[in-house]
Amino acid sequence: MNTIISYAHIKHNQIAVNGKVVLHLPNKSYTEFLTEAYKSLQLSYPKFYKMDAQCKLAFLAMEFACKDNHFLTENDLSKTAIVFSNSSASLETDQVHQNSINDKQNYFPSPAVFVYTLPNITIGEIAIRHHITGENAFFVSPQFNGKLLTNYIHLLTQTNTEAVVGGWINSDNNTYEAFIFLVQNVENLNKNSIFKPLNQTSITNLYNQTSWMH
C-alpha cells in the first residue's frame, strides 16, 4: 500500500517534521531564515547558495523529510519519482530575470538566474542531491491539491515507480511554503502506526494539521 512514511513542512520561519516544529527562527528575513536553516543541518553543499529561494525551500524540506528514516537507502532510487506542484511556477525568479532585461541601458540577463525560471528545477536539484533518477512531474494549481497529487502518485506506482517524493513548493513574493512527503510501499500497515496510507484525505489532513508555533 502506498504509505506516507515521513513529511516536512516549512512556513512562517519554522520547519516541522511529521507535524511537529523542529526549527523556529523568528525575526529573520526570508533569506536569513533559509540560510540559517541550511546551516543548522551542518552540511557541506555549496551549491545550496546558488539556488533560488524556491529550490532552497525544496532542498531544505527534503533534507528534513528524510533525516530520520531510511527512505533513501531502502528504496531503489532509479524507481523513485519526484512529483512536485505549486501555484506560482517560477514567477518569483521570472520577475528577477525580467528586471534584468527591462532596462536597455542596464541589460545583463544572467544565466544563473535564467536557469531557475522553470519550476521543475526544484525537482532537478533534489534529484542531483540524492541521486533520485525516477519519474518527474511538476503540476501547477491554484492551491495545494491533494487530490491531483494522490491521484497521479497512485498512477505512477501502478507502473515502474516504487517510491515517490511528493510535494508543494511555492515561493512567491516572500510568501513561501514547502511541504514534502515521502511515499513508499508498506505492507500490513499497523493501525497504530505513525505511517499513514496515502489518499486525498490523509495527505490533505497532514498538510493542514501542522501545529505552527505562534
Binding site: 532509479s78 532537478g124 536539484e125 534529484a127 542531483i128 533518477t133 518527474n136 512531474a137
Partner: peptide
C-alpha cells in the same frame, strides 16, 4: 516513461543516463 539524469540542472548527462533509462 520519464527519468532524471540527477547530474546537472542545465547540462545533460554526458552518458545520456536519464534518456537511456
Amino acid at each position: 516513461a520519464s527519468a532524471n539524469d540527477a547530474n546537472h540542472i542545465s547540462g545533460p548527462s554526458r552518458n545520456g543516463d536519464g534518456l537511456y533509462q
